[in-house]
Each structure stands twice: as structure tokens, then as C-alpha cells.
Computed example of a mutant assay.
Amino acid sequence: MSATSAFFERLTVACRDPRFSKVRGSVRFDIRDGGHLEQWLLDIDHGRMRVTRSGGPATTVIQVSSQVAEAMARGEVNGLAAITRGDIMVDGDLALALRIGRLFPREPGPPQRDDPDSGA
């Protein structure tokens, strides 16, 4: 399973996120890999989340390559930075697209000093 699919599967299982208790809208992810298009639709209703593999209408559409989507799902790419670079195109509610960034894992940082595996 790809990191992107695993990310959306986790959202499906979670069903609810209190950080989105005041949010209502939908975001469709159009993920391109060459000529192949994969679409995921995330509906948010006051913290309740529903994920489907659908190309239906959405408040916000995020267009991204499969490579960038995979890197985001692994926490290796910051969504705002990717938008700024033009790696992600947003059509619709930009504020909602930026809020969705909270769902993705954070970028890995340097090891903590008290981490026994860091060698410090």
C-alpha cells in the first residue's frame, strides 16, 4: 500500500478530528501519476470526516503529483511550501486547503538529544 493510500485509510478509520470542529467543507485530491488520475474526496462536517475514492464536486480541489503526495503522506514535504513552489495547485478555498495540512504528518526533524538512538 502506498503512503498516500495509508494516509487516507487512517482518516477513514479516525472519522473525527476535534481540530476541525468548526469546519465544514469538502476537499478533493486529484493525484496524477503520468496519465493516471487517482481521486480522493474528504468531506468534513464539524469535525466528522468521511473519505471516499470519488471525483465528485468539492469546495476545494488540490492537484498534486503522486510523488509530492507520497512525500507529504510520509511527512517529508510541507504543504504550504509545496504550494509556494507550485508543486500543489489549489482551486477553491485556500484557507481550507491550508487547514488540511494539519492532517499530514509533520516533517521529520533532527533527533532529540535525549533520544538513545541519536548517538548523543
Rank of each mutant, 00 (worst) to 15 (best):
A14R: 12
C15I: 03
C15K: 12
D17V: 07
D17L: 12
D17Y: 08
P18W: 07
R19L: 15
F20L: 15
F20N: 02
S21C: 13
S21T: 11
K22E: 14
K22M: 15
V23F: 04
R24K: 13
G25T: 13
G25L: 14
G25I: 11
S26H: 08
V27E: 09
F29V: 08
I31W: 13
I31K: 10
R32P: 03
R32T: 11
G34N: 07
G34D: 10
G34E: 07
G35D: 11
H36R: 12
L37N: 12
L37S: 10
E38A: 14
E38M: 14
Q39F: 05
Q39A: 13
Q39H: 05
L41I: 05
L41G: 06
L42Q: 10
L42F: 14
L42W: 14
I44Y: 03
I44G: 01
H46P: 00
H46N: 11
H46T: 04
H46Y: 13
G47V: 00
R48C: 07
R48Y: 09
R50V: 06
V51W: 03
T52F: 00
T52I: 04
T52Q: 06
R53L: 05
R53G: 11
S54H: 02
S54A: 09
G55R: 04
G55I: 03
G55M: 02
G56N: 02
G56W: 06
P57R: 11
P57G: 09
T59S: 10
V61Y: 03
V64W: 04
S66Y: 10
Q67S: 04
V68M: 01
V68Y: 02
A69N: 09
A69Y: 08
A69W: 07
E70K: 12
E70T: 15
E70A: 14
M72L: 05
M72A: 07
A73F: 08
R74L: 13
R74D: 03
R74V: 03
G75K: 03
E76G: 02
E76P: 00
V77L: 00
G79V: 00
G79L: 02
G79C: 01
L80T: 10
A81Y: 01
A81G: 06
A81M: 09
A82R: 07
I83S: 01
R85E: 01
R85G: 01
G86D: 09
G86E: 10
G86V: 14
I88H: 01
M89N: 14
D91V: 06
D91F: 01
G92T: 01
G92C: 01
G92V: 00
G92E: 01
D93V: 04
D93I: 05
L94A: 09
L94P: 09
A95W: 10
A95Q: 11
A95R: 14
L96Q: 09
L96N: 10
L96S: 08
L96D: 11
A97D: 10
L98E: 13
R99K: 11
R99Q: 15
R99L: 15
I100P: 00
I100T: 05
I100F: 05
I100Q: 03
G101I: 06
G101Q: 14
R102L: 10
R102T: 05
R102W: 08
